[in-house]
Simulated scan of single mutants.
Amino acid sequence: MTHGTIYDPIRKKEVPNTPEERVRQATVRYLLHEVKVPEHLIAVEFPLSTIDPKTDDRVDILVHGFRTGATMDLPWLLVECKAPGEYTWEALQVQLNKYLKVITPNYVMLALGDTVRYFVINPETRRFTKIDSLPQFQ
């Protein structure tokens, strides 16, 4: 059930105010204000078909690594957001693994309601290491 709309500063429009969208917008605010990611490098509901036409998956939030010269398939951050109570960490991991077949981010952020987990990914081994928080965007 939605209660009106919520403004998305990245997509520059009102979107349905769903529990998942509230998590997504809280994450966007966190990235803008705490991590200091420039607004123009954030993509919301990013279609992975931009990189691999064979997929119709969408990533909740992607922070491009263009500043460091990275291509679209090597973003700085991939974020997956879910409303509280809708998913388990295991289900989130399965969804994330699908995305990681297409892109290799430096960092991954999983937001399950108010609970957030952060990881850094080794690009060679593709191994995840849990970290306490994201570094400031450079």
Rank of each mutant, 00 (worst) to 15 (best):
P19F: 08
R117D: 06
N17D: 15
L74M: 10
D8Q: 05
D114N: 15
N106P: 01
G4W: 00
V102H: 03
P105I: 10
Y107Q: 06
P75S: 08
K101Y: 02
A91G: 10
V120L: 05
V23L: 05
D52I: 04
P47T: 01
A26G: 10
F128C: 07
T88P: 01
R24D: 13
I131L: 04
M1N: 10
L31I: 01
D8T: 02
L134N: 00
P53G: 03
L134Q: 00
V79Y: 00
W89V: 06
A70N: 08
D114Y: 09
N106Y: 05
M1R: 08
A111S: 15
P75D: 11
W89M: 09
I121G: 01
R29H: 11
D8V: 03
K82A: 08
A43Q: 14
E45L: 00
A26N: 13
E21Y: 04
V23M: 05
L74I: 10
P53H: 04
M1F: 09
I131E: 04
Y118P: 04
T129E: 15
M1I: 14
H33C: 14
K130G: 10
P75G: 10
A91Q: 15
L41R: 07
E14I: 08
N97R: 12
H3E: 14
S49W: 07
T2W: 06
V116T: 13
T50S: 07
E14R: 09
P84E: 12
D114C: 07
K101W: 02
L110N: 05
N122A: 13
K13L: 14
L31A: 06
T50E: 11
N122W: 04
L110E: 02
N17R: 13
L31P: 03
T71C: 14
E90R: 12
G85F: 07
K12M: 13
T88W: 03
P84N: 06
K130N: 12
I103Q: 02
E20H: 08
V63Q: 00
I6V: 15
P53M: 02
Y99W: 03
E34R: 11
F128M: 13
M1C: 13
P105Y: 08
W89L: 07
V63F: 01
P123L: 08
G4K: 01
T125K: 04
L112Q: 01
T125I: 05
L62N: 02
H64S: 15
H3I: 09
L62C: 04
A83N: 03
T55N: 04
I131G: 02
V28E: 03
R22M: 13
T18E: 07
I42Y: 02
V44A: 03
H3L: 14
Q136K: 12
I131M: 03
N17M: 10
